[in-house]
């Protein structure tokens, strides 16, 4: 299993655990006095689950298992893979903090956090698709 895949899959598992802990907190009845910050984390919960866990798990397995391109550079440019990993995770973590912050302190002028987070996640996924696209093909048969 390539190192990049191990990072994707281990990170995915951590996101799954965090997402489900957050889901538990959100499932507490409204009478429980949770910090407002947590109450505003519903979209964060979905996206830790769907981007952090599901999508990142898929990325790790695609990078590992899809047909290789050539023996010399089987999985394309791995630097792009690391860049994609870093951008996606930085963007998602920034959303995790930024989205509830913007919701609870709307006067603080922190909206740009979400703009940056959106851009980082978008770039991270675009780089991954760029890397994966040429590997959607027949099995490698030499040459």
């Amino acid at each position: 299993m390539p190192t990049l895949t191990r990072w994707y899959i281990k990170s995915a598992l951590v996101y799954l655990a965090v997402a489900l802990i957050l889901a538990l907190l959100l499932a507490l009845p409204a009478t429980v006095n949770l910090p407002l910050f947590i109450r505003f984390m519903t979209p964060v919960y979905f996206h830790l689950f769907l981007v952090g866990w599901v999508t990142q798990m898929i990325f790790g397995v695609i990078y590992w298992m899809f047909p290789i391109i050539t023996r010399v550079q089987p999985r394309g440019n791995v630097q792009i893979g690391w860049l994609s990993y870093a951008l996606l995770n930085a963007g998602l973590l920034l959303r995790m903090i930024g989205e509830p912050l913007v919701a609870t302190q709307s006067a603080a002028g922190l909206g740009w956090l979400l703009v940056v987070s959106a851009l980082l996640q978008w770039l991270g996924i675009v780089f991954f698709v760029y890397l994966a696209w040429p590997r959607v093909k027949e099995k490698y048969r030499g040459g």
Binding site: L114, V115, S117, A118, L119, Q121
Partner: peptide, 10 residues
């Protein structure tokens, strides 16, 4: 999604 998130911030 990215446009929506950016719009949520700004």
């Amino acid at each position: 999604g990215a446009l929506l998130l950016a719009h949520k911030g700004a």
